[in-house]
Design a binder for these strands. Structure first.
Lengths: 334, 334
DNA sequence: TTGTATGCGTTATCAC
DNA sequence: GTGATAACGCATACAA
């Protein structure tokens, strides 16, 4: 079934058929009606390949997920997918290891799939500075701050993470915690890790709490197992932390398991705070205290910014949405 | 950059270029070498749209996920994605509510995207019987048994669920449990729920344990919240269950939270067993006893079966892979 | 307002 | 072994 068939069926030419199906003006109401009905009747669908070949572009939005074991991105992809369903756009999702170079990967996929635009779920400044200028479609960097990246086709949406982290640590301090261990990503490879790390440092400095990154910071992958091992490491040195802040909920859950395995109770012996606000955090025992990124807003704004840049040629927009600190059962006063 | 450009660059005609790029025979080694090098040099990629338009098919494998809040499918999609990466195939993932009709949705998407084949993650016999005959591309039904569906283009991969469930309940009985509550899906809408339900019934009958579905079975959605509410319901009647079997790990985690909220301890007061074997089950406190579906094997076999049916015209294959019962901390003797 | 014709980049069928 | 050339289904510039 092609527009040619529709043409013989309705008596109109393929040109008119095409115009109707693309909602172009300059078609009589009658033609529109007849053609739309005929198309409806036989469940006609335009051939995407022919369409895209002709128009030299696809309707694909490419989603690059950096770090597939971080459940945050899983939830985010799903939320984005929900918002794209029913729109004319298609989502192509590509997962990669958190240590891969997302910009080089994007470059390759752009050639291959000719997407309309890109969504980076996670990303590192250095990779962007090195190669992003070779990407010429609109992009949105999600969960990382792109305001210092000087690219006309790159917007960003993220939370005010450093502030939220600083507030969180300060609150832990106010709760009487002095020995606070941090579990996070590899700072040299992850901007997110570095940014949150700086939030921690700022809090410790502000309150004159000693903090020795060599001992008090354990870097690992954004995964359950990563958190598990990092907690084991932190507590292997006998430094008796009363609280652990983790840069991801998945890490926090791994850490809680590790603490429990070594006979420590959460939160009675050690408070644990995570970051992300994953749905499951509400259901584990104890409920996970966390810095919540609003996944729905993140998803909504990133898609909106991208679609905006399809239509208009505005300057890039760098949005910061507030992170919400949620004090739940896994954290308590000393 | 098109094969035409490559043609002028190398002096060969587009025909030869195309043959080389598609690994066809009847090209001289020299031509092959020259063309491959030129293509490599400028990072040439064939235009997928032109290719697919010409060949009247895509390289897309459509993945239909039925029930987006069931984390099992999230993990499964990821595992499948890993196996497809690097192959000539592209994955198009479509999430739908667990109550939608996956076959009708598939029908629509087939017209729209002309996929090479389909992967159904979850599916109901009745929907297949009603409309699957209108689908003419190879399909694999994953996590549901398709052996009773008489379609030449439908294979399936699933676990021996009813048996595994029966064994699990029997083991609970051997552990001394007599009051066992079941949390599961809506049997009238979900074959999976029905099948696992029958496994439960078989076990109860075999051991002459009274089981009243009206009271002892709570049906809900495959989600954390579903499990939470179902557990509340079961325990609201004062029937003092000593064990709860849940048809999904996400339900089990919700249930554990609900029990804890009502002052019951897991496993001291109530044992909880899940189904799926999600990675996170290893990390929650207590570690979740579960019937583990081997996600990696499911992913691998489903892709292999599908790719096989692209190449050859064998009879459909219905594979059953063993479910592994993992007794962990959340279950114990009475 | 509508019809006609051209070309998008590729594959495949011919001739050579 | 290789080169011309005709489709594939659609959008669009142009003609009517």
């Amino acid at each position: 079934m092609t527009i040619k068939d529709l043409s013989v069926q309705t008596g109109y030419s393929v040109g008119t058929i095409s115009r109707v199906l693309n909602n172009h003006p300059n078609v009589s109401d009658k033609a529109r009606k007849v053609i739309l009905e005929a198309a409806e009747a036989c469940g006609f669908q335009l051939n995407t390949n022919a369409q895209q070949l002709k128009q030299q572009r696809s309707q694909n939005i490419l989603v690059l997920v950096k770090g597939s074991s971080n459940q945050l991105f899983g939830s985010l992809v799903e939320a984005i997918q929900r918002r794209v369903a029913g729109s004319p756009f298609h989502l192509v999702v590509d997962y990669m290891d958190e240590d891969n170079n997302e910009v080089l990967r994007a470059l390759q996929l752009c050639r291959e799939k000719k997407p309309l635009g890109l969504l980076f779920l996670g990303g590192n400044k250095s990779n962007f500075l090195a190669d992003f200028d070779r990407i010429d479609v609109p992009c949105v960097l999600v969960t990382s701050d792109g305001s210092e990246l000087p690219f006309r086709n790159l917007s960003s949406v993220c939370c005010n993470e450093d502030l939220a982290v600083k507030d969180t640590i300060e609150h832990l301090i106010q709760l009487g915690h002095r020995r606070i261990g941090i579990i996070g990503g590899h700072r040299e490879r992850s901007d997110t890790a570095q940014r949150r790390f700086e939030g921690c440092q700022a809090a410790f400095r502000a309150h004159d709490i000693p903090f020795n990154p060599e001992l008090d910071y354990a870097s690992t992958r954004f995964s359950y197992l990563g958190g598990y091992r990092a907690a084991q490491l932190l507590f292997s040195r006998g430094l008796n932390y009363t609280a652990i802040f983790c840069m991801a909920d998945v890490m926090a859950m791994g850490a809680i398991r590790a603490l429990t395995d070594s006979g420590l109770r959460v939160p009675e012996d050690v408070s644990v705070v995570g970051f992300d606000g994953l749905p499951i955090g509400e259901f584990i025992v104890p409920r996970l205290a966390t810095v919540s990124q609003d996944i729905e807003t993140l998803a909504q704004r990133s898609i909106e910014l991208l679609r905006q840049s399809f239509d208009t040629d505005l300057d890039p927009i760098h949005e910061v949405i507030p992170a919400q600190i949620q004090w739940k059962e896994s954290a308590r006063p000393v």
